[in-house]
């Protein structure tokens, strides 16, 4: 996707131009993947109950560089993160992917909310709920086709609220010092 280097003098005629945008996305994605891996080490009482630290990076990218970049970072994070953790194409991967896609789908309109009134915390909360909503929905449709899944929703929703706020605050804090922003 984003090759590290292409040698001019190789005999192959593959030339991949790497733009500054690619580098930027790759850097952010790397940060998000690192957070995903770090987070995988945190013991969790329930699959699905985790801080979602990588979303900090996704939101940061969303606010600084727009939705397309955020989508790249988010999806790269899901794919590469699951590869690193050894979950690629396992159920956890699809849950993660569904959550990420729904989250991006919600963020697309939400990012146009007036910035004066709605800050990163709103986006973070919405993203967190979309994330968990997508996961529960997929779990209900595919993994556990029984309404018993919804029994866990209050726990997930509580987690989404808490970490949605915390992650949002972190994003808000990280955005301030960017001199080019103000």
């Amino acid at each position: 996707m984003i090759p590290s280097a292409t040698e001019r003098h190789t005999k192959r005629h593959i030339e991949l131009t790497v733009t500054a945008d690619d580098h930027r996305v790759a850097r952010y994605a790397a940060a998000a993947i690192a957070l995903t891996v770090a987070e995988a080490a945190i013991p969790s009482p329930l699959p699905g109950v985790k801080p979602g630290l990588a979303n900090i990076v996704v939101l940061l990218v969303l606010m600084r560089h727009g939705w397309a970049d955020a989508a790249w970072v988010s999806l790269l994070r899901v794919v590469a993160g699951s590869l690193v953790v050894g979950q690629f194409l396992a159920p956890g991967f699809f849950l993660s992917l569904t959550g990420a896609l729904l989250s991006l789908a919600v963020l697309a309109p939400a990012m146009h909310l007036p910035r004066r009134w709605f800050g990163p915390v709103t986006l973070s909360i919405l993203a967190a709920f979309a994330h968990i909503g997508g996961q529960v929905l997929l779990a209900r449709l595919w993994l556990v086709p029984h309404d018993g899944v919804f029994y866990l929703v209050p726990v997930f929703a509580t987690t989404a609220l808490i970490f949605g706020i915390v992650n949002g605050l972190i994003v808000a804090r990280l955005i301030i010092p960017k001199p080019s922003q103000s």
Binding site: V121, T122, I125, F150, Y151, V153, I165, G168
Partner: peptide, 26 residues
Amino acid sequence: SLLRPGDWLCAGIALIVVGISYPLLW
């Protein structure tokens, strides 16, 4: 100070949703 008015609103609504989900789903 990082929270804007809409953030409070959003968090408030989310809190209500979470609050309702417990009796509703449990």
